[in-house]
């Protein structure tokens, strides 16, 4: 028996999707396809030695970033961990800029100095790309603090894994965010494994959302494989943050299909192939596609069209990254200090 409590939801009567929102649904589907294909090509480029270092792929988790980011405004702040290619892409950083960064090229969104784990796009308020587990949770609260300080209604969203819920920075930040009523949305992407350590082997509390109780903070547990559920839950949290200046802890139950990083096995000592296959039945892309088809909002031709579009974009990004120049050697010593 699988140790995972989040099996595919039972198929039963459900409300029909709202046909007037067809464009939104298509966009969400396209973005998930975009992220997945981007990550597949990134994995391929890594395997060819074109991407170095650590490279953490997002395949399986697409609904979390796509659904939640759809609920934000362009002037809101976004912070992510080191599995953040998707968040940058969905936020609007171009495929070219992200892929070029993975390739370490001068045209990358961090000029080739950041790499896979340190994507930044200040113009889109995409504020990283942080690779010390939990260290960016206070940073996101800092941006939320700035909104409150300036009297704006911008919210600050922070993505982190469930393993980060055991680190001090998480607890210190949630306490202060609740104490000071900061407009922060803390999205825990619970993919069940901190590298190879299963949630229940690291945390005595299984439901990460319950951690909010200590801080008197609103919380919700969401099916992180359901992009529409992610979208709606984030909208509720955004409303709470903008209108009432209250933070929210959102726990998204999701699953990563790949190894922790490209250098790690997909399954093995810590999880079984059977569990992986079972979780793939919850696939966010297949799930949305099936629902749209069922409700007559998508046909095969339209799906193929979406796929074709993202393939072209990602392939262009790979070619761009390949052809882009390496950083000038003089760049080594720039950007250490701001003049």
């Amino acid at each position: 028996m699988s140790a995972v409590k989040d099996a595919a939801p039972p198929v039963g009567a459900r409300a029909k999707l709202d046909a007037s929102r067809r464009a939104l649904y298509h966009d969400l589907l396209r973005q998930m396809l975009h992220v997945r294909y981007f990550e597949e090509k990134a994995g391929e480029a890594y395997a060819q030695g074109k991407i170095g270092g650590f490279c953490h792929l997002y395949i399986g988790q697409e609904a979390v970033a796509v659904g939640s980011l759809a609920a934000l405004r362009p002037d809101d702040y976004v912070f992510a961990g080191y599995r953040e290619h998707a968040h940058a892409l969905v936020r609007g950083t171009t495929s070219r800029a992200v892929m070029a960064e993975l390739f370490g090229k001068a045209t990358g969104c961090s000029k080739g100095k950041g790499g896979s784990m340190h994507l930044f796009d200040a113009a889109r308020n995409f504020l990283g790309g942080h690779a010390i587990v939990g260290s960016h949770i206070p940073l996101a609260a800092g941006a939320a603090f700035a909104s409150k300080y300036r009297g704006t209604d911008q919210v600050s969203v922070c993505y982190f894994g469930e393993a980060a819920a055991n680190i001090g920075a998480f607890h210190e930040t949630l306490n202060m965010a609740a104490l000071w009523r900061l407009p922060g949305i803390f999205i825990c992407e619970n993919n069940r494994y901190g590298m190879g350590t299963a949630l229940e082997r690291a945390s005595v509390v299984y439901d990460i959302s319950q951690r909010s109780c200590s801080y008197h903070m609103a919380a919700e547990t969401v099916d992180g494989m359901d992009v529409l559920a992610m979208y709606e839950a984030t909208r509720r949290a955004v409303e709470r943050a903008r209108a009432e200046r209250l933070p929210t802890l959102l726990e998204a139950r999701t699953y990563r299909y790949m190894g922790h990083s490209m250098a790690d096995p997909i399954h093995g000592h810590y999880r079984t192939k059977e569990e992986l296959e079972e979780q793939k039945q919850r696939d966010p892309i297949a799930g949305l596609r099936a629902r749209l088809e069922e409700d007559g909002l998508l046909d095969d031709a339209q799906y193929a069209e979406l796929e074709k579009g993202v393939h072209a974009e990602v392939e262009d990004a790979v070619a761009f990254a390949e052809q882009s120049p390496e950083p000038d050697p003089a760049e080594l010593y720039t950007d250490v200090y701001k003049a």
């Binding site: 960016h136 206070p138 940073l139 800092g142 600050s156 920075a169 210190e172 306490n175």
Partner: peptide, 11 residues
Amino acid sequence: LGFAGIGVGAA
């Protein structure tokens, strides 16, 4: 750790 990070985030 928390308030130092909040400061960095605000900066």
